[in-house]
């Protein structure tokens, strides 16, 4: 699971208010490089919950990866940004799409229900009596 997906996931456990953002606990993670796509990143950025993404990179022990405020469209569109490893574009790309959480857990912020991540797959399944009405 990448942080893009973490950014889109919420807890539906009974008692959850928003169930979002899920606290990330990381045991093992990996990096797989892929070619950045500036158009995708520019289109996706407005849909990203920035504080949740920053919190996830901090949970990974990468507090330097992302700035406090999201990059501007101009930063993402800057010439050569895709080729420059330190650019805002590449940092966003790395955070959203290149980091894979392999083992760990997602914890509901409201109920502390723990959803394990095993072999890269988060298990969001709830027992019938746990599902929010």
């Amino acid at each position: 699971m990448r942080l893009l997906t973490h950014n889109m996931l919420a807890s539906n456990a009974r008692g959850a208010v928003t169930g979002y953002p899920l606290k990330l606990q990381v045991v093992k993670w990996s990096t797989k490089e892929v070619e950045p796509n500036p158009e995708f990143l520019r289109g996706m950025l407005p849909k990203i919950d920035w504080p949740a993404l920053v919190a996830a990179t901090q949970a990974l022990g990468l507090p330097e990866l992302l700035p406090e405020a999201p990059p501007t469209d101009a930063e993402l569109s800057a010439e050569g940004a895709a080729a420059d490893e330190g650019s805002a574009l590449r940092r966003l790309h790395r955070a959203l799409l290149e980091i894979h959480i392999e083992e760990g857990a997602l914890v509901c912020p409201d109920t502390d229900r723990c959803f394990p991540i095993s072999r890269g797959v988060p298990n969001m399944l709830l027992h019938e009596d746990e599902v929010r009405n």
Partner: peptide, 13 residues
């Protein structure tokens, strides 16, 4: 890949 019932947990975001 996510283990979930249909799209549970993804519907809002």
């Amino acid at each position: 890949v996510i283990a979930t019932d249909i799209v549970s947990g993804l519907e809002k975001r």
